[in-house]
């Protein structure tokens, strides 16, 4: 099962671990959808891990997250998921590539 959690190694030519793109969870809002975990069910990349008692979601594999994808944020019923600014990330990618 290790292959499942293996991330893409680079994104746009930049080491993926240098790109801080993954969902941030607002624990004042996240209720794990009462055990339904909509984000977990939705995301095929094994980014999330469910927690119980109380039900919450946690980011387990941040670098599995597809850079620029925010699909889970849009479907979160509690609006508990956020991402970094895309323009910041793009700037960082360009800077990393320039450093070469």
């Amino acid at each position: 099962m290790t292959s499942e959690s293996e991330p893409e190694k680079t994104f746009m030519g930049v080491d993926r671990t240098k790109i801080p793109w993954w969902p941030r969870i607002d624990y004042d809002r996240c209720d794990g959808c009462g055990g339904e975990y909509d984000c977990l069910k939705f995301c095929p990349h094994h980014v999330y891990r469910p927690l119980e008692n109380p039900t919450r979601i946690e980011v387990e594999n941040p670098y599995n997250c597809v850079v620029f994808c925010k699909a889970c944020q849009k479907m979160c019923p509690q609006d508990a998921i956020s991402f970094p600014e895309k323009s910041e990330i793009l700037r960082l990618i360009k800077a990393e590539r320039a450093r070469g």
């Binding site: 939705f42 994808c69 699909a71 895309k86 990330i89």
Partner: peptide, 20 residues
């Protein structure tokens, strides 16, 4: 839109995704 922005979305029998 900027590179990396989402603009619209697709839904398929397997998933829903943004157009990036």
């Amino acid at each position: 839109v900027e590179l990396g922005d989402d603009a619209g979305r697709l839904e398929s029998t397997k998933t829903a995704m943004e157009i990036i």
